[in-house]
Computed example of a mutant assay.
Amino acid sequence: MTTPPPESTQKFDPSRAAEYQVQSRIALAGYDACHELSACMLAATLGPGRPAQVLVVGAGGGAQEIVSAGALEPQWRFTAVDPSQPMLDLALERLREHELLERTEMRLGYVEDLPLEPRFDAATLIGVLHHLPGDAAKRAILDAVATRLKPGAPLILAGNRYAYASEPLLLAAWGERWRMFGAAPEEVQAKLGKILQGADPPRSEAEVAGLLDGAGFDAPSWFFSSLFWGACIARRRV
């Protein structure tokens, strides 16, 4: 299998997986809304009620991409790929709970491990890009996704898209979000320190657009924002 930067995979260990469902919804205000709108954007692009094969990259954790899209579009089928076994185990539990396992192929590994054919009708890359250190790793995963999509196929890309230290007000508001959910002041500072050291988001929406362009996608359309987080849709160029 292709080997990613080890720190981007190892941090999603069993302890992280166990707390993911709760912590992700605190860290991202509008977590469920983002996933629901992502499904709606894909359906609006592909056409409602049509069969589709959807690639879900980084599906481990709650598999919320599949839960939301699977409820909206009963004819969609999914290939879910994630390099973390604990996170993939959690996704399996949720998909079983929502009766979506029969419509989902689960793969432990990386996008680069998938065959180039048949190509997918759409893809999602949600909450992944900012965990990859450096532009080279970001370009590599976008290239790998693009080569597995049909021409004109849409990609939902979502994640943090500003350098954290460049937006002190957003960072402070993020701390207040944790305080709102019961974190003590020292815990808030610890979380903010971990955020500053633990991820490498693109530095702007323009940089995201440049990464997408380099991988062969058209200009993105942004449809969701929550502090540092943003979600957009872009089509693979024909």
Results as ranks from 00 to 15, higher is better:
V145A: 10
K194L: 07
R16M: 14
G214Q: 11
V54N: 01
T124R: 08
A206W: 06
A231Y: 05
W76L: 08
A122S: 11
C232Y: 02
T9H: 02
G127E: 06
G152C: 06
P220C: 05
A172G: 04
P6M: 14
A123M: 07
E73V: 00
L90S: 13
R235I: 01
E65C: 09
G175D: 05
A165M: 08
P168A: 12
L72E: 13
E105M: 05
R96H: 12
A163E: 12
R236S: 06
F78E: 01
A59T: 02
F228S: 05
A215D: 04
P202L: 10
V56R: 00
T79S: 08
L90V: 06
M41L: 11
E176I: 03
F223N: 07
L37A: 12
L37V: 10
G134M: 12
A234P: 01
K138V: 12
F228L: 07
A39N: 07
L142K: 12
A43P: 00
L196E: 04
G70W: 03
T79G: 01
Q21D: 15
K150N: 11
L37E: 12
A158P: 02
V128Y: 11
H130R: 12
A209M: 05
P6G: 07
V57H: 02
S225T: 15
V81P: 00
P51F: 04
T147Y: 07
E187L: 06
A17C: 06
D13T: 14
G210V: 00
L170G: 01
S8P: 01
M41W: 15
L157N: 09
Q189T: 11
E65L: 03
V111L: 04
G198W: 02
S38K: 06
I233Q: 10
R203E: 12
T2V: 09
A209K: 10
P133R: 12
R94G: 00
S15Y: 06
A144G: 06
Q189E: 15
G127T: 14
T147M: 15
G198Q: 10
R236F: 05
L132D: 04
I126A: 13
I26H: 03
L142F: 13
R161W: 10
L142M: 10
A146D: 04
L28Q: 13
E65S: 15
G109P: 02
R96M: 04
L196A: 14
Q23K: 13
R50W: 08
L169Y: 10
L155D: 04
S221P: 00
K150Y: 08
W174M: 14
E186F: 10
P5G: 04
S225M: 01
S166R: 13
R119D: 02
M41N: 01
A27F: 09
L211Q: 08
E105L: 10
R139M: 06
V188R: 05
E93V: 01
P51N: 03
V54W: 02
G49M: 09
R94N: 13
R139A: 14
A231V: 03
A173I: 15
A146K: 12
R237E: 01
A183M: 09
A91K: 12
D32N: 13
L192R: 11
E112Y: 05
R148S: 08
Y162S: 05
V208P: 00
M87G: 03
H98S: 04
V54E: 03
V208Q: 02
L129E: 03
H98R: 14
A39H: 06
A80Q: 07
A158N: 11
E73I: 00
N160F: 08
I141R: 09
W178C: 01
T45K: 09
W222M: 05
A184K: 14
L129P: 02
L157C: 07
A122F: 14
L171C: 08
